[in-house]
């Protein structure tokens, strides 16, 4: 049983930070609690942020998407404002996180802030260039999500509060594909690969390859991304794609654990990255023809 002295409710982000710093003793934020109840923080009190006005989903006229930190994964998975964003990659990730009742309370902020290498919203948000908004007592700061994670279960936050995430709309066309590899249907990721390609004038302008569960923190395979930039969508060769995938496999730093070996994870980064690039390019035929990749 979790030995907690006090459970506090915050009505706003500022109040949350204030309550957190008020003492006595140490505190922690709690949103859905789906992670907290499994790994109770050693603290005297918690600050509940579910009523702090952080549960909004909004779309700007320009198409940017804003997700409040306390938005539940179920809301993300079913919200029409999110449905078509990034070709559905975001709802796909949210809908495959945990199980249905967990998603009713699990929040996107909690998923990012627990900073597990396998956190499933992290790679998709990295691939979509998410910016985090962080609240201090009376100021707010924004930070690219790539800089948010500092190690397993560690972020830049300290006692500050994540208030939300902003995802920019892509200028041209964005093509996306992702895959979460698991042992059974509902499971923690063994490997999670998310690919987002910004396309302009038939060329890949920007490339994002984000990987989960294969490094101490969710990561981007920047060298592999660089391979793709500038390539023509119609003329890009399967070999180049395979090369990029192999580079991504070289970039990750997986560990051996009881879920999978590092060797397997690395090879799956290769296989799944290649497949997701092809899928993102809507080139399903190549996937099936080339060395036996699947539309996984």
């Amino acid at each position: 049983m979790w030995e907690l002295k006090e459970y506090r409710f915050a009505a706003s982000a500022q109040e949350a930070v204030a309550l957190m710093r008020q003492g006595p003793g140490t505190g922690a934020y709690i949103a859905g609690g789906t992670d907290m109840f499994l790994h109770p923080a050693e603290c005297d009190f918690v600050v509940d942020i579910n009523h702090a006005g952080l549960s909004d989903i909004a779309r700007t006229p320009a198409g940017d998407l804003f997700l409040g930190a306390a938005t539940t994964l179920h809301n993300i998975a079913t919200n029409p404002l999110v449905a078509d964003f990034a070709e559905g990659m975001l709802i796909e990730a949210a809908a495959h996180c945990g199980n249905r009742p967990v998603r009713s309370t699990a929040t996107i902020g909690g998923n990012i802030c627990n900073a597990l290498p396998s956190a499933d919203m992290a790679p998709v948000l990295l691939a979509l260039d998410a910016t985090c908004y962080i609240a201090d007592a009376d100021s707010q700061e924004s930070l690219p999500l790539v800089d948010f994670f500092v190690g397993p279960r560690a972020t830049v936050l300290e006692d500050r509060l994540l208030v939300g995430l902003a995802l920019p709309a892509e200028a041209g066309t964005r093509r996306c594909a992702s895959y979460k590899l698991t042992r059974s249907a509902e499971d923690i990721s063994l490997v999670h690969v998310c690919v987002a390609l910004g396309i302009e004038d038939g060329k890949i302008e920007t490339a994002r390859i984000a990987l989960g569960a294969v490094a101490p923190v969710p990561m981007r395979a920047v060298l592999a991304e660089a391979q793709l930039v500038g390539q023509s969508v119609t003329e890009i060769s399967p070999d180049l794609i395979a090369d990029a995938a192999a580079i991504a496999a070289g970039e990750c730093e997986p560990l051996d654990d009881h879920r999978a070996s590092a060797e397997y994870r690395r090879d799956m980064v290769r296989v799944l990255t290649r497949r997701q690039i092809l899928r993102a390019l809507h080139d399903e035929t190549t996937i099936t023809k080339d060395s036996g990749g699947t539309v996984a």
């Binding site: 059974s184 249907a185 509902e186 923690i188």
Partner: peptide, 11 residues
């Protein structure tokens, strides 16, 4: 059950 998987309705 997070790491010892038993079959769910989807399996």
């Amino acid at each position: 059950f997070l790491d010892y998987k038993i079959a769910s309705a989807l399996d």
